[in-house]
Each structure stands twice: as C-alpha cells, then as structure tokens.
C-alpha cells in the first residue's frame, strides 16, 4: 500500500528481472473514473466526481494482500506476482491499483490476475469515498463483485488443468 503513484512500465521491468522463465505477463490497472460508480448493478451514473478518497486499515490490509497472493501462488504456477494499492485522495484519471502476474503460460497469468483483483475487491479492507458537487458519498459494496469473487470458490479451478494450457 502506498499514497504515491506507481509507474506501470517500471514495475513490469523490475519484475521481469526476476522472472526470466515467464512467457506471459498480465497487468491490470484500476483507475479513478470520471463518473460515480453509482448503481448496485455496476452501471456508471452521470454524477461527475471531483475526487475519490481511499481509506484503509493498515495492518489488516497488508495481511490480507499477502494472504491473497499466497492463495494465488498455490493455485497457479506464478513466477512473479505484484499488488500495489494506493490510498488517500485521488482525482479522476489517477491510478488506484496495480496487479501484475507472470507465468510460463498466458492462461495462468490471466486467471491469476482476475482472481487477485476479484479477491482484493471483496476482502482487502479499503473503502472508497466519492466526492462530487453534491458532497461526499461512501461507495457501497456491489453484489456483482461478490459474485465475481465467489466464482473462484464455487468453480475451484485446480492448477493442474491449467499447467498444460497457455
């Protein structure tokens, strides 16, 4: 976790130094939207944001992100795995979160990246406060995010079936 911005290219370059056996790097960057996340179904509203403030629970955030990474590494053959999450006040267009996975084959890297984002959205203790002309508004958790996270529990994809693919 950090307040400062991150450089996606520099982070990938640094990870590549230590993951020379990887044939696939997948990167997800989450960015502050210009409009409120609004409705529970995930559709954006027309409320224009001036900023978004991310609050977190420092000790628990670190533990949770570590646990999520351990879980991803137990499910997929990853050579490298990085989660960077910002906190504090961020303006539209600013980076919020970066997830990078590296694996010998692309399928594991894609799936692990999706898993990491789905789980951190529903488990890591961060809260978003949207600021607009109408004042501050705490973003509500969305059922579609729970559903996205649950599919990794229900479907329980075993790493064995993915090692051959890619």
């Amino acid at each position: 976790m950090q307040a400062e911005d991150f450089d996606v290219g520099a982070e990938i370059a640094a990870l590549r130094q230590g993951a020379t056996g990887s044939g696939a790097f997948v990167t997800f960057t989450g960015i502050v939207r210009e409009y409120s996340s609004g409705r529970a179904d995930g559709a954006t509203s027309d409320k224009q944001l001036t900023a978004m403030t991310l609050e977190h629970y420092p000790g628990m955030t670190a533990r949770t992100l570590e646990a999520i990474e351990v879980e991803a590494r137990s499910r997929w053959p990853l050579d490298a795995c990085l989660i960077v999450h910002r906190y504090g006040r961020l303006e539209p267009g600013a980076n919020i979160v970066l997830v990078i996975t590296a694996s010998p084959h692309r399928l594991a890297a894609f799936e692990a990246a999706e898993f990491l984002v789905d789980w951190l959205k529903t488990k890591a203790p961060f809260w978003k406060l949207e600021e607009s002309g109408a004042g501050g508004h705490w973003v509500e958790a969305k059922a579609i995010d729970d559903k996205a996270a649950d599919r990794w529990t229900v479907a329980a994809p075993g790493p064995a079936q993915h090692r051959k693919a890619g």
């Binding site: 999450h85 951190l120 809260w127 995010d145």
Partner: peptide
C-alpha cells in the same frame, strides 16, 4: 468494525 469493503 467497518462496512463491506470497496477497494480495487
């Protein structure tokens, strides 16, 4: 004590 999380 906190609300359901909304990071990511």
């Amino acid at each position: 004590l906190f609300p359901p999380v909304t990071g990511g």
